[in-house]
Write a protein that binds this DNA or RNA. Structure first.
Lengths: 219, 219
DNA sequence: ATATTTTTTTAGGTTAGTCTAAAATTTATA
DNA sequence: TATAAATTTTAGACTAACCTAAAAAAATAT
């Protein structure tokens, strides 16, 4: 059996692994789990004994195939529950993360299966993140970052790659929400900031930092 | 903050209290929690320090007002989730208890509120048990036990007061399900067993033990 | 290439929730 | 009402997940 806490470690290692080819350091995990490096070392040894990660001391950690599968199932549950909370219960997309952090550990394959069906087999969560299927396969959504879109192109906003409440509320304030069309009017050479048109007639100016975190679909 | 385990103890003490006026014994709690009496003693001392139960050693335990409120909130969540699982996800009523045992500990008042609304403010769960409101008030459903119904009366089956899978599957087998009409044909003086008519033309014979656990609405 | 800094691990300790075995208390019985 | 039986509590120990402080290893800088 795998515990709530172990599941969280696997999920965190999975997410850190997505950003690099290298092993994940003890400190990197400690920062995300909000624990001390010593605690992480203990847990890595334990996960290693269960064959969920490959870990050599001082050399960082990597998920094994079965560790990755477990991580993907947790992520699948998290994202399905987020869809439920937003689409069925009417929560705002910036309110669901905490609750989904709890729901993702509910243990029942039958439940996940039925929830998926009830939601109409969604491909992505309310932030545009892809939902792995029951075998752990991620759907290929082909979204790009707005920062990679050239001048005079028009795209549709599909998601975000940063989920902080701050960021989501900033987007709401400047009129950016899922499904709106965004036209890139001008890209500033110096700092890569963008002048964009949101919808039909709202103009806005956003930094490269923000553009990098917006997922869009090219028409 | 109150833990998963503490919530379970409160819920169990609440349920045991419904069956008696007296204090609940350490052993009674141990039996339901599937732990040893020594562990229960430890927990009762802790809950007592938190003012959630009143407990004098060797004298058994009772919920305080705030302990009872917490227990009722857990029961509320359990029953709302059961409604969700059956009405929305299509589970059978004998399959939902385990999953609801996990879901009942998810911590968000906003979630419970919205779930209640999404389900249409149900008055009772799929077993006919009343769902406390957000203030902990139980709706008065006025159901009776089938064992208290006299000969020649007709009632509607509304629920059960025993939730074991065994029992629920036995009911399914003899054709008893929520909403069917039951007519009491004859009551056996000797052992109080009943001859009943289920629906229009199905006759059946049930023991007093079974009749005691069926909740019915008198027309 | 050595010294310094940073990272990681080890050693030993804490808390929540459990256990067993023994002691204390209550209840039942003769 | 004294004794036996049952119940409950205490004492001491275990595991999971965390901690701090110190030691060890790796990375960086002089």
């Amino acid at each position: 059996m795998i515990s709530f806490t172990e599941e969280n470690y696997l999920k965190i290692i999975y997410k850190l692994s997505a950003e690099t080819e290298n092993e994940i350091s003890t400190n990197a995990v400690a920062e995300v789990t909000q624990t001390k490096a010593a605690s992480v070392t203990d847990m890595l040894r334990k996960l290693s004994e269960k064959q969920l990660v490959s870990y050599q001391k001082y050399q960082g950690v990597r998920l094994t195939k079965s560790g990755e599968n477990l991580a993907l199932q947790v992520i699948r549950k998290h994202r399905l529950w987020e869809v439920f909370l937003v689409n069925k219960l009417g929560f705002n997309w910036d309110e669901v993360h905490e609750i989904a952090e709890e729901l993702e550990h509910i243990n029942s394959d039958e439940l996940v299966q039925r929830l998926d069906e009830f939601l109409g087999f969604p491909q992505c969560d309310p932030h545009g993140d892809p939902i792995p299927d029951s075998h752990g396969r991620m759907p290929e959504l082909g979204y790009k970052n707005l920062s990679d879109i050239g001048e005079n192109q028009t795209v549709i906003m599909m998601g975000v790659s940063q989920h902080s409440t701050n960021f989501l509320q900033y987007l709401a304030k400047i009129g950016l929400s899922l499904g709106v069309s965004i036209s890139v009017i001008e890209v500033n050479d110096f700092d890569k900031s963008l002048t964009i048109k949101i919808g039909e007639n709202l103009h806005s100016f956003i930094s490269y930092e923000v553009a990098k975190n917006l997922l869009v679909k090219v028409l």
